[in-house]
């Protein structure tokens, strides 16, 4: 039984908050239900629910401060949550570490750290290598192969601080590839990278897709959403809408998420772009 007087415009909202049923769906690569995260008693995320479509590329979009990074970090149990259930193929996150790869924001680490590009990529293998053991020749070879995938083989012995922003991003991507996970969560991989790197990242995303992986990407550039992604999740303090780009990436949903931030014409153009692609 549903409370039916919440009708009209509210139905959609109710639907946006649905998806909580999927929680126990063991087939979902990443199911998040009723996720609330608060900093200092102010909720950054409120009752967010989402189930990642398997084998698809999903963009997470929303205004600054909408809780996109928080959504990824809380999904990964990196920060405490006030409420909410999270499962990866039916398992709790703690039991599914091997299935999930994470690409943090580039600005989250100190690039002056004494490590080479190869060192950083090898870190993606540390879980497989296990505690106390040192990476062997095979591990290094695998890490080198990952660097090759992102076009960085020539820089493997370079200290990471001497790489450009785009190159650093590629190193982070190669590290995630080395993890050989089933689900990939990426926090703004396209932020501040050059055009060549952007193409290289898109190639990697396509490759992951071809291998049947599920990828979620926090993304800022609305114009490229219909070009790069098949699905979209609109976030603003909670989930506003989610679904295939062709159906969900509409002017209406953009307006709902960003409000006055986007001029009407821009919205219409973005909506058109989505339709053209569809």
């Amino acid at each position: 039984m549903k409370i039916d007087h919440v009708s009209g415009g509210a139905t959609k909202i109710a639907l946006a908050e649905a998806g909580r049923r999927d929680v126990l769906d063991p087939g979902s690569p990443l199911a998040v239900a009723g996720l609330t995260v608060a900093y200092d008693r102010k909720p950054v995320l409120w009752n967010a629910s989402f189930s990642a479509p398997e084998g698809e590329l999903t963009a997470i979009v929303g205004p600054n401060g909408a809780g996109k990074s928080t959504f990824l970090k809380a999904s990964l149990s990196l920060i405490p949550r006030l409420s909410g259930e999270i499962s990866v193929y039916g398992k709790p996150m703690e039991a599914a570490r091997g299935d999930v790869a994470y690409v943090p924001q580039r600005s989250s680490v100190d690039w002056d750290f004494p490590a080479t590009a190869l060192d950083v990529v090898t870190m993606g293998l540390y879980r497989q290598i296990g505690w106390f053991r040192w990476p062997g020749r095979k591990d290094r070879e695998r890490a080198r192969a990952m660097l090759e995938l992102v076009g960085m083989e020539a820089f493997s012995d370079r200290q990471i601080g001497q790489l450009s922003g785009g190159q650093q991003q590629r190193v982070f991507l190669a590290r995630a590839l080395a993890q050989d996970a089933r689900v990939y969560l990426m926090d703004e991989p396209f932020a501040g990278v050059d055009a060549a790197t952007e193409r290289a990242i898109v190639d990697v995303l396509r490759k992951l897709l071809a291998e049947g992986k599920t990828v979620l990407v926090v993304h800022h550039d609305l114009e490229t959403v219909p070009l790069y992604f098949s699905h979209v999740l609109f976030l603003n303090a909670g989930t506003v809408a989610s679904g295939p780009v062709t159906e969900t990436f509409t002017a209406e949903n953009l307006q709902k998420t960003y409000g006055g931030r986007l001029a009407a014409t821009q919205l219409a153009a973005l909506g058109e772009a989505a339709k053209v692609r569809g």
Partner: peptide, 12 residues
Amino acid sequence: SFDPLFADTLGI
């Protein structure tokens, strides 16, 4: 020392 958040996602 380099990336504590990433370490946590690896279960380390």
